[in-house]
Design a binder for these strands. Structure first.
Lengths: 211, 211, 211, 211
DNA sequence: TATGAATGAGGGTTCATTCAT
DNA sequence: TATGAATGAACCCTCATTCAT
């Protein structure tokens, strides 16, 4: 092992250490934000919970809003992952199946990241122009996906004649509110994703499918 | 006109003046909150917009959070007024009609109080325990009303077998999200309440009625 | 009764009314100051207790400190009245008798104006340069009187050789502290002026008289 | 020197630095309070005099009243130290000697901490319930000590028959007033502790001893 | 004279961020 | 990289006093 490799190794280990430290602070902040809300949370709360010094926080994150934004991004990315499945075109699965899958995945994500979702549901709006824009974009994308799926369904003769814009809002609304209700439950409470997801889907499909 | 009457007259005029002044400040605060959001709004912004002195504000309102809470209450009261129509019992109108009326009224309220609704939708959560509790209670009541209406509908054979709890969440979700979308539009933009309300209702009724 | 007399009568009645109103407010302020202390007392407390309007207060008194100063003056004048009896010269009563009379009178004043004295003892220092100067002057005068009396007593061969300055401070100190202790008792508690005054005098006379 | 020692060294130096900084602010505040009085002193005055930032003050002290209370405590502790010498029992020194020592020590403390005493004498009453209680307790303790000493003296046949309660008040009064007079002198003025203490003691002993 | 709404200077405290060590 | 003392802008609220009616 020559010197360069050694240096690379050192650098790599340092970088890994840095990443894990960063992740640890991020995770700690997540818990604190979820417990107290964005505005009630002070940097002091986070560094105290993480057991780090004041200055250390700023070595890893630019500001209070930056770390919050990052947590938000994380969830949005996570949720988006489970939604991109909605596709159109001849080879795609039928809307019904796509929706079923999507809804189940979303609820599973919510269930597994309840803390993050709580924040998204309770705090993410009205904080900051950047945050707001990001959320608008996220919901706008979702809305667009749903509209597309509905139009596609109509073309395929599965979905009835309806106002796609408003109905897309309705569907998004059902998902959001159900998410919100279950996200704000006690952390320990068990949620029957199957049952909730089933009822949610059933409701929405009845609203859109041909009779 | 004797002295007493005169005094009464003075007192009445004073009281009226006070009320109108209060209403004026409340209205000004509403606009400022709607424009900048609760946390971004400083008392200075409100008194500057209202053209009053610092102390004057505190002559009419106890604190920043108090005036905000009052605005919130105003909207909740307004919305509640249009919702108490949901009734059960032999003499009551059918669920379908009741829901139609309710939804139309809610959307009309939102349309006429768009600024207030914006605040409710964007800011009202996570500010304060008092505010939070008030909102929880409000939404809890709504949820309860909807569940009752569904059960009643089931008894009357109009509503299909469904998970009333989750479906109530779905319905509430559709209304909330549609409200939110239309409340956050440009203040000038016209909203076709008929069309939106019609589609919203149609969607929800299909979700709940017997096929 | 001619017109002028009538006008004089009116003016006199008006002036009397003004004086009695003033006295009433002064008395109310006294109680409030005694209850809450100078700094804790707000103009609002006084006008509320007196049942008058904000502006009315300023028709009778220039400011918060002005009304307080006036109350202080009242007590100082009252106390001074009972102290001017200390005289020197061939015809004057012996120091012993003069002191006895003075001390008894002071204690009686304190007893009858306990509220005022409480204020003097608890609040009068460090408020204001004017107040401070007034008090310094008052105590300075007292100190001077006592020194004179001691010197006179020495000339008459009644008072022993002593440091008149320091002993005068001692005497003043005994009176002040005893006043303070009895002034700050519950307003209802009875004080045996005879007994207290007797012991106080006895102590001081033993300190100064020839053995 | 190993790493741990080094860390300990750092921590110790940091702690020392913190303590000295704290002491410096405390001392600065003392001067400002003494110059302007509690109510006239603003936090701005203290931080300006200390040359520190606004927030720095709150890093070391909780509030304006907290720092004041601490100064007060300091003096009370100091004074108390010199008073606990009054003892009863067969082996104890005679009351006369104990009083002499005590009074001299108190006056020396006052002389060495004239600024603090000024505050105690001029400002400490009527500020705050906590402060008031503390002072009442302090003076109450002193009063108790003196009563005990008198009773003990009576048992030993040194002290004459007298009203111990009132005479204790007298003694306390002489000490307080003499303290006050010398504390409020110009800071530069020299005080002949011997002479003042001697006269004070002489006066009080004559008041209490058997003739 | 009486009223009480209006004023606005002023002060205490918080907390995100910086920086010397 | 890690620390935590220091910073100071920001902001809410109080209350003595004024003034139009």
């Amino acid at each position: 092992m020559n010197e360069l490799t050694e240096i690379d190794g050192r650098a790599r280990r340092a970088s890994e250490r840095r990443e894990s430290r960063r992740a640890y602070i991020l995770d700690t902040a997540l818990k604190v934000f979820a417990r107290s809300g964005y505005h009630q949370t002070r940097i002091s709360d986070i560094i105290e919970a993480a057991g780090i010094a004041r200055g250390t926080f700023y070595l890893y994150f630019e500001s209070k809003s930056a770390i919050f934004l990052e947590l938000l991004d994380e969830l949005v990315v996570e949720l988006r992952k489970h939604i991109v499945g909605v596709e159109q075109g001849p080879g795609a699965a039928p809307v019904e199946v796509q929706l079923t899958t999507t809804v189940t995945r979303i609820l599973e994500t919510v269930e597994s990241k309840r803390t993050l979702t709580t924040i998204l549901m309770r705090e993410a709006v009205g904080l900051d122009e950047v945050v707001d824009k990001k959320l608008q974009e996220f919901y706008g994308n979702l809305h667009g996906y749903i509209v597309l799926a509905l139009v596609e369904g109509q073309n395929m003769g599965i979905v009835r004649a309806l106002d796609t814009d408003i109905v897309a809002s309705c569907i998004l609304g059902t998902v959001k509110h159900v998410m919100e209700r279950y996200a704000t439950l006690d952390p320990g409470a068990a949620v029957d994703v199957e049952r909730v997801g089933g009822a949610l889907l059933d409701f929405n499909l009845r609203g859109v499918l041909q009779t």
